[in-house]
């Protein structure tokens, strides 16, 4: 299970990367492996204001539909259109090419409140039991 040290994590298995006043968001390696083959991805529109915990899109595997939740509040600055044509990237490169949305942060304290890699690792181990 790949859990990069430089990212922050949510209990819903999103990751968040601090890129100054913006945060790049995707789903974790654990999430993609639990979902299986991703066949469809869609996001809310650029410019949408979201509160922490709001849905910013959905990922669909053959068997299930899952929401992607905003790890923190802000405005959707960019979405990764490439995933709409190549949803399989979510399985292949969840922390790289398959980033999902970029959020213009409102309050950096919300980022600090997310889990670090070590905490998330323990959380996944617990959940996988």
């Amino acid at each position: 299970m790949n859990i990069p040290d430089d990212l922050k994590y949510t209990k819903d298995h999103e990751w968040a990367r601090d890129e100054g006043n913006r945060v790049r968001v995707g789903i974790t390696d654990y999430a993609q492996s639990e979902l299986g083959d991703i066949v469809f991805v869609e996001f809310v529109a650029t410019g949408t204001e979201v509160a922490r915990g709001d849905s910013v899109g959905t990922v669909e595997s053959v068997k299930a539909v899952s929401d992607i939740y905003a790890p923190l509040s802000g405005t959707i600055a960019e979405i990764n259109d490439a995933l709409e044509d190549s949803p399989e990237l979510v399985n292949q490169d969840p922390y790289g090419k398959a980033w999902m949305v970029m959020i213009e942060m409102e309050d950096p304290a919300e980022l600090d409140a997310l889990m670090d890699a070590q905490t998330y690792d323990a959380y996944v181990a617990q959940e996988a039991k």
Partner: peptide, 20 residues
């Protein structure tokens, strides 16, 4: 295999991935 409950049977839903 990823195992799921299928009408009371513990069955493999996939090994490597459904598409492959």
């Amino acid at each position: 295999a990823r195992i799921v409950d299928f009408h009371g049977w513990e069955m493999p839903v996939w090994y490597s991935g459904i598409k492959a």
